[in-house]
Simulated assay, not measured.
Amino acid sequence: MKTSQRVLLGAALVVLAVVAVMALLPQVIATHDPLRTDVRAALEAPSAAHLFGTDQSGRDVFSRVVYGAGRSVGIGLLATGLALAIGLVVGSLSAVAPRAVDATAMRITDVLMAFPEFLVALVVVAMLGPGPANVAIAVTIAAVPVYIRLARVQTRTLALAEHVEAARILGVRPLPAFSRHVVPGVLGSLSVLATIGIGSSILAAAGLSFLGLGPIEPVPEWGLMLSGGRNVLAQAWWIAVFPGIAITLTVVSATIVGRMLRARAEGRAA
């Protein structure tokens, strides 16, 4: 790995570490109560008292960004984890299922993959209704086709590997052989893809929240904060800019780590 790549990877890991602390221990970093309002301090510019300024209700933007990490990152992680689990099960079973079942599953997957993930998530959450849980479900449904496709391909490839054939020759039953020698390899490939997918899921969840389909005020959430600051961008830019920076840094950092992991897994330079 080149020095520049190491520096880039180190910076990305630092950002993700900070975001993780924000999500798990927000009270350690936050300087104010994120829900406390003070109309006398409304729309104050960034200062020593309020590092990221205040919003229309006088709430501390820095503290809201810190507490918002838990919801924004949490939804992204939950959606990615669910998509990985569903993709592993459906993709692996499709690979060993009868041809008619496999063909039906792949045609449904192809239809979902034909549309942008955000559009699929938008349609799903519009059908289910707004709310954090429905946003997570929508993002999961939008992301899962990619995991199904990869799991199917990897299952078929590993099922023909020499060590799997050797296990069968030695008398290992099909199900134990499949679970011990095929599933771990498929899970490893999906885990690398999931590292990249976390960023996409966070971005999709923030986009849905921005449209008013996720958490509602006064809950601190990055996408919702962006939406709340767009109407006062000219006189109070900090309300929208700092949550936007948080989203950008998190998504870019997760993507960098994911791409480097994928490059390492494929045995090539990042």
Rank of each mutant, 00 (worst) to 15 (best):
K2R: 11
R6T: 10
V15T: 15
H32G: 03
R36A: 15
V39D: 06
A41N: 11
A42M: 09
E44N: 08
S47F: 11
Q56P: 01
S57T: 01
V65C: 08
Y67K: 01
S72Q: 04
V73K: 00
G74P: 06
A83E: 10
A85L: 15
L88Y: 08
I108C: 11
I108N: 04
V111Q: 05
F115N: 03
E117T: 14
L122M: 12
A126Y: 05
N134F: 11
I141W: 03
A142N: 04
R149L: 09
A151Y: 01
R152D: 03
V153W: 03
R156K: 14
A161M: 08
A166I: 11
I169Y: 00
V172M: 12
V172T: 13
P174T: 13
L175M: 13
A177D: 10
F178K: 01
S179D: 02
V186R: 00
L190G: 04
L190S: 09
I196P: 07
I196M: 10
I198K: 01
G199A: 11
I202K: 01
A204P: 03
S209D: 14
P215G: 03
I216F: 10
P218C: 00
N231H: 12
V232K: 00
L233Q: 05
V241M: 13
F242K: 00
A246V: 11
I247V: 15
T248S: 14
I256E: 05
E266K: 02
